[in-house]
Simulated scan of single mutants.
Amino acid sequence: MAKGLERKTIAIAGSRKTDEISTLIEKQGGIPIVRPLQGTVFLAEEQVEPDLRKFVETGADWVVLTTGIGTNTLLDLTERMNIKDLFLQRIQEAKIASRGYKTFSALKKLGINPVAVDEDGTTRGLIRALESFDFSGQRVMVQLHGEKAPALIQFLNEKGATVQQILPYQHIAPERKIVSALCDELINDQVDAVCFTTAVQVRELFDYARENEYLDKIIHAFKSQTLAAAVGKVTAEALKEEGIERMLVPEKERMGAMVIELSRYYSKQDI
């Protein structure tokens, strides 16, 4: 019996756990190719330390945590700075808002219950959860996730909050030759599906396509021949913003679940 991804070439746009995803694709009969569209994530430790010390000294009325990795990174940083207990104390004194299941899990391990939680894992969902609260004159610390969150910051500013942004890690642009190679493969119908694991990867691909006048061809490829697979709602949201409606999104937001859903999708196509 043929496996679901038999003779299918699947591009992996992520930079983490690529060996694991490749193995899963191969087990389903597919041919994985790694095309990381997200550069190395690194700690901006020197830049973050002053922000963390300021937060520990002054505290905040609200703390908005947007990623699990960011929450854990702040804990690791404050431990190295010997201010972890004070940092946790400040968090426990504040009202907490949480985006995403990984952030919620990280808080649960600390015994902290957020008062506002998104319903769908997106920044828009978090904003909806915060709409009923009064932020006039409130001090809000926002943990960002590798890039700015303009919609969230604008919302808080418009509600009258004073916002302190902390960015514990940053994204470096991917190698241009890798993005160029994937664009060529998409245009020449050499890839059956692309697995996107973050919204950053989507933006990097489409920004590169725009800059190099490939955009129409890339959009056409996704609409007609190559399937876009998004690991979760935030990534899917980024694809929709680029005009891609034809996509696969697993119910369970995991990379393994995405590969299995891809396999099922192609199995149904072959019936």
Rank of each mutant, 00 (worst) to 15 (best):
residue 125 G to C: 10
residue 74 L to P: 10
residue 105 S to W: 07
residue 13 A to T: 02
residue 139 R to H: 11
residue 111 G to Y: 06
residue 244 I to S: 08
residue 116 A to F: 07
residue 217 K to D: 14
residue 1 M to I: 14
residue 10 I to M: 01
residue 201 Q to E: 15
residue 69 I to H: 08
residue 21 I to R: 02
residue 2 A to F: 13
residue 260 I to V: 13
residue 117 V to S: 02
residue 4 G to A: 08
residue 109 K to I: 05
residue 80 R to Q: 03
residue 217 K to M: 14
residue 45 E to P: 00
residue 64 V to W: 01
residue 23 T to L: 14
residue 218 I to G: 07
residue 197 T to G: 08
residue 169 Y to W: 10
residue 113 N to K: 10
residue 66 T to E: 03
residue 59 G to V: 12
residue 91 I to W: 03
residue 77 L to D: 05
residue 261 E to M: 09
residue 122 T to K: 07
residue 43 L to N: 07
residue 158 E to L: 08
residue 240 K to R: 14
residue 34 V to M: 03
residue 267 S to V: 07
residue 158 E to S: 06
residue 54 K to S: 01
residue 253 E to D: 08
residue 245 E to Q: 15
residue 160 G to P: 02
residue 122 T to P: 02
residue 146 G to P: 07
residue 262 L to S: 09
residue 217 K to I: 09
residue 270 D to S: 14
residue 194 V to L: 11
residue 165 Q to I: 03
residue 134 D to N: 15
residue 15 S to H: 00
residue 204 E to C: 08
residue 230 A to L: 06
residue 220 H to A: 14
residue 242 E to S: 11
residue 228 A to K: 12
residue 173 A to I: 05
residue 125 G to R: 08
residue 39 G to D: 12
residue 75 L to Y: 04
residue 14 G to H: 00
residue 167 L to V: 10
residue 10 I to Y: 00
residue 90 R to K: 12
residue 143 Q to L: 06
residue 79 E to L: 07
residue 92 Q to D: 00
residue 122 T to G: 01
residue 106 A to G: 12
residue 255 M to Q: 10
residue 36 P to D: 04
residue 34 V to F: 02
residue 145 H to Q: 10
residue 153 I to G: 10
residue 100 G to M: 05
residue 76 D to L: 04
residue 101 Y to K: 08
residue 79 E to K: 13
residue 185 E to I: 00
residue 119 E to N: 02
residue 234 V to F: 04
residue 106 A to T: 09
residue 68 G to E: 11
residue 148 K to Y: 07
residue 62 W to T: 09
residue 41 V to T: 10
residue 220 H to K: 15
residue 225 Q to H: 15
residue 11 A to N: 01
residue 77 L to R: 09
residue 203 R to M: 05
residue 120 D to N: 14
residue 31 I to G: 00
residue 226 T to V: 10
residue 36 P to C: 04
residue 112 I to D: 02
residue 30 G to A: 08
residue 176 R to N: 11
residue 201 Q to F: 06
residue 88 L to K: 03
residue 38 Q to L: 13
residue 139 R to K: 15
residue 131 E to N: 15
residue 126 L to D: 12
residue 193 A to S: 12
residue 50 P to L: 09
residue 186 L to H: 03
residue 79 E to N: 06
residue 80 R to P: 00
residue 60 A to P: 10
residue 176 R to P: 12
residue 208 Y to D: 09
residue 225 Q to G: 02
residue 150 P to I: 07
residue 145 H to P: 03
residue 131 E to G: 14
residue 5 L to H: 03
residue 119 E to V: 03
residue 270 D to C: 06
residue 81 M to I: 00
residue 85 D to S: 13
residue 152 L to P: 08
residue 79 E to R: 13
residue 14 G to E: 08
residue 85 D to F: 00
residue 190 Q to D: 12
residue 86 L to M: 04
residue 34 V to I: 12
residue 225 Q to S: 13
residue 197 T to H: 09
residue 100 G to R: 05
residue 236 A to W: 06
residue 128 R to F: 14
residue 67 T to Y: 09
residue 141 M to R: 02
residue 30 G to D: 05
residue 199 A to G: 12
residue 22 S to C: 06
residue 94 A to T: 00
residue 50 P to G: 06
residue 253 E to K: 13
residue 36 P to L: 03
residue 149 A to E: 11
residue 12 I to T: 00
residue 27 K to M: 13
residue 67 T to S: 15
residue 85 D to Q: 13
residue 171 H to G: 01
residue 252 K to G: 01
residue 58 T to F: 14
residue 204 E to P: 09
residue 71 T to S: 12
residue 265 Y to P: 03
